[in-house]
Design a protein around this nucleic acid. Structure first.
Lengths: 105, 105
DNA sequence: GCTTACGGTAAGTCATGACTTACAAATTAG
DNA sequence: CTAATTTGTAAGTCATGACTTACCGTAAGC
């Protein structure tokens, strides 16, 4: 459902850098922009995408907007992976059972 | 390093559908193309991307090429998430300790 | 041998998205 | 109130990538 948002958000290098920069501490847009090789408006646009993917969240403080990590996005990602694996394992198991049954027959 | 490949591979709807279709059983290109609303060459190109991201692998059998799941891609993804979280937790912990110290001072 | 089936590749089109500069809104400082 | 700071938004440019049709190589069947 929202997997597309999370995957495409983290598919971009600049966004992944921003996201990993927030790993250490909450930061303002200006602080984040200084670390990146792109302009501040570009960072703003990236933050909007990250926010839509529920990977970051904002906390306004005066004119500044302090961005920090939002757990929801990565939790969704982990859920996707986990569910995928359980499905894979059950499918493989039935495949194995089928092959075993063929052997017996 | 290869995170970009995995994220961008799964960011596309068609590719995610193909990837999830392989969850159940290995399939040929033709079988996968029948389930998708795009042409067979398009599926071929998507499979190349998925293969580059180590999400699927091929097994030639005559003229057919049987695609199946490759664990490496998703393992890399899970590794990314896990490492991210350990970094986040340690950063938060030091933040909490700093705040506690400030209170005491 | 020839034909058919399967699938990868080439070339071209079109939409998306990452980036820029210019501008506007909102809060703080004097 | 005015000026300065911070940030989001608008508009436009340019590259990327998802898709199509046409084509080529390769293995199997008659």
């Amino acid at each position: 459902m929202t997997y597309k948002l999370v995957f495409s958000a983290l598919a971009d290098d600049t966004r992944r850098h921003i996201f990993e920069s927030l790993k250490g501490r909450p930061q303002t847009v200006g602080e984040l922009a200084e670390e990146q090789p792109v302009s501040r408006p570009a960072v703003s646009q990236h933050l909007r995408v990250l926010q839509a993917a529920q990977l970051v969240s904002v906390n306004p403080e005066g004119t500044r907007r302090i961005y920090s990590i939002n757990q929801d996005g990565l939790h969704a990602l982990r859920h996707y992976i986990d569910e995928y694996w359980t499905d894979v394992l059950s499918a493989y198991q039935s495949e194995i059972l089928k092959q075993t049954g063929d052997k017996d027959a």
